[in-house]
Every structure is written in structure tokens, then in C-alpha cells.
Design a protein around this nucleic acid. Structure first.
Lengths: 193, 193
DNA sequence: ACCTGAACACCGTTCAAGT
DNA sequence: ACCTGAACACCGTTCAAGT
């Protein structure tokens, strides 16, 4: 007989729930994520998740916060020969993240009342800091309009890429847009300097 | 006694459902829109909606298609002294739409498989045509990278504005971004011409 | 084109009583 | 920190039999 000591207590149910939820998120989207279904998949009782999350929203909050943390990590690792190229690389990274995890991206930026995501908010703010820092490197001092423009541009590319309409952007188009935007940023910083 | 001839047949249940659904969408978002709840609000039986919509997805599809049609209408009415100002006005219109109907905007651009929205797709494609036409007026011939850039920029502003994070854009910032983008579009069209 | 009413397989959430 | 098991108030969806 094998030593399948079916554990009475689950090893790390919290992590197992988050992991299973990440998969479910990419398969069916945030709307149809079910706590009971996750419990079934993991072989625990339907109310076991409530030992780790107050309710369904708390699980979604944790997933969302985790998503922002991973996005920040990815942005931090973007590299480029020049500052402008690094900003372009950050843009590519942002879009690539949405492309790789569209369900998670949708969850992160879903319009819900912000009070339902207390854990997410500080992590999201921290993520935006990396975009700010990158732009500051290019332009010297940081123009808030530049920050808003680049963030909106990159977020728009991501959202249009992640959604399911036939209208989404091709990867080559995304590269062209981000490259041109980074170039424009450098040119204006030369003029105004 | 008043003549409240409580109608056995509802006057126009289809329109009444769509109207009630639009309200519910803005109150609680797309996820928690319930057919049974709509039926209750309208005083009809819980399965009456199935006379007009095959299922819940069909109702969401109809709402989404209607949303794109209204957005197209609004974009068409954008005016400006110059072509560039008209493009900027279209950008403002797009963002204002998301701002006025965040629940509907979220529904329209939610990542679901496109097959679940057959009615929406052609109307969405038609909407994009108005952005294309506006840009063509500014640049003479239409650069696909310009189209993609402006659409992504405006969509990103809208999405960040419509979502519930503390990070959203202020209206003054949105005006600054769209104005500068339109200006940049004009300047490059002069250089390359 | 609606109604009533029952039914099925789901949900999230909360108990009570166990180990 | 889990379990079983029951319970409550919801869902979407599909019947059957009416008007």
C-alpha cells in the first residue's frame, strides 16, 4: 500500500485555495468563481474556506493584492539600454501581464466599490510608483500629465488586448505604440529642458 | 377607484427588462445582475423574461450592444473648431461615457469569450469606425499606429476613471492628456506630410 | 405572451456539534 | 484548523398546465 495518508488537516489550505482560484479565474473569469467549487476541487468541506477568508470578497481581495504585487515585481525587472527603452520595456511588461493573466487583470481593475478591497489598495498604489520612477528617469522631473498619459496608454492597450472582442490589438501593434510613445516622451523632454 | 387595470400581459416587457437592467448595472455591477430580481421588480413571474431572452447571457448581450450603439451616437456628435479639436472632443466623449455609465462600460469590455456576445460584435466594430474617421480627418491618410494609440489612450483613461481604485484620473487631468495627445497628432501629421 | 407552481442543481453564508 | 451535516435565502433554467 502506498502512504497516501489522506490528511485530516489540509497542509496549507489558504495557499491551495489561492492557487486553485487563480486557475479558475483564467478558465471562467471572476464572475463565476465559486467557493464551494474550490472546496470540492481540494477535497475539503464547503465551509472550510471560511477558516481562512471571511467571505468570497476577501478571497478576491487577496487574489487582487497578490496580482498587483506580482505586476510590481515584473515592472521592477524591466531593463533597457536607455531610460526611454526601459520605460518602453515597462509598458511591454504591463501589457504582457494582462495578456498572460486576463482573468486576474480583469479582477484587479474591476469596478467595485473600493471598500470591498482593503488589502489591494496599498499594493496597487505601490505598483504605480514603478511607472512614476521610470518616467522620472527619462524626463528628469516628473510631469504628472506624462505619468497619466503613459499609464492610461499602457492600461488601455492591456485592457483592449485582454478583452474578448475581435478588436484587440496585435502584439506587433502594441510594440509599435509603446515604442513611439517612449520616443515622444524623450523628444519632449529635450525640448522643454 | 382609480383605473389601475393591472395588466395580465405586460405592456413591453422586453424594454422594461432592459431599462431595469441598466439601473441594476449601475447600482451593483454586471456580476450581481439577477433575472429573478428584475422580474420581481417588474411584478412578473420569474420565468417571464425567458419569453424575450434565451438566457442571462442574451440579456447581457443586448445591453452591451445597446451600449455600443449609444457610444457610437455620442462620438458622432462630437464637434470641434479644427479637426484636432474634434478628435479631442471624441476622446472626452468616450471618457464621459465611461464616467456616466461605469457599470455598462464594464459590461461592454468585460473579458468573456466573444461567442457569448454575438449581437454586440458588429455594433462594437461600427463604433470604432468613428474614431478611425476622426483621425483620418486630422492626418489625411490614416496611420494604424495612430488609431491604435489614440484608442488605447482614451480607453485607458476611461477604464482607470471607471474603476473604483483611489488611483483614478481627475477630470482636469483627463482634459490635459487628451488635449496634448490631439496636439501631438497634429504636429506629427505636419512633419510627415 | 404572459400566468402559477413545482422542480433541479447550484450558490454564499451560518449554524451546531464533533475531532 | 479542520470535519459532517443541516439549514436559509438565494440563483439560472426547465418543466407542465393554464389563460
Amino acid at each position: 500500500m502506498s502512504d497516501h495518508t489522506a490528511p485530516y488537516h489540509h497542509g496549507d489550505l489558504r495557499q491551495a485555495l489561492l492557487s486553485a482560484a487563480r486557475d479558475a479565474l483564467e478558465r471562467n473569469g471572476p464572475a463565476s468563481l465559486s467557493l464551494r467549487d474550490l472546496a470540492r476541487q481540494l477535497g475539503v468541506s464547503h465551509n472550510a474556506p471560511y477558516r481562512h477568508f471571511a467571505d468570497r470578497d476577501a478571497l478576491l481581495d487577496a487574489l487582487s493584492a497578490e496580482g498587483f504585487a506580482r505586476l510590481a515585481e515584473a515592472l521592477q525587472q524591466a531593463r533597457g539600454a536607455t531610460a526611454a527603452e526601459r520605460v518602453a520595456a515597462m509598458g511591454q511588461t504591463y501589457v504582457a501581464f494582462a495578456d498572460a493573466h486576463p482573468g486576474l487583470f480583469a479582477l484587479m481593475f474591476q469596478p467595485v466599490d473600493a471598500t470591498a478591497r482593503p488589502e489591494t489598495q496599498p499594493v496597487a498604489a505601490r505598483t504605480l510608483e514603478f511607472l512614476r520612477a521610470g518616467i522620472r528617469e527619462v524626463t528628469g522631473d516628473e510631469d504628472p500629465v506624462d505619468v497619466a498619459t503613459l499609464w492610461a496608454l499602457v492600461h488601455g492597450l492591456s485592457a483592449l488586448r485582454a478583452n474578448a472582442h475581435q478588436l484587440f490589438m496585435e502584439p506587433t501593434m502594441i510594440r509599435a505604440v509603446t515604442a513611439r510613445a517612449a520616443e515622444a516622451l524623450v523628444q519632449r523632454s529635450r525640448v522643454t529642458r
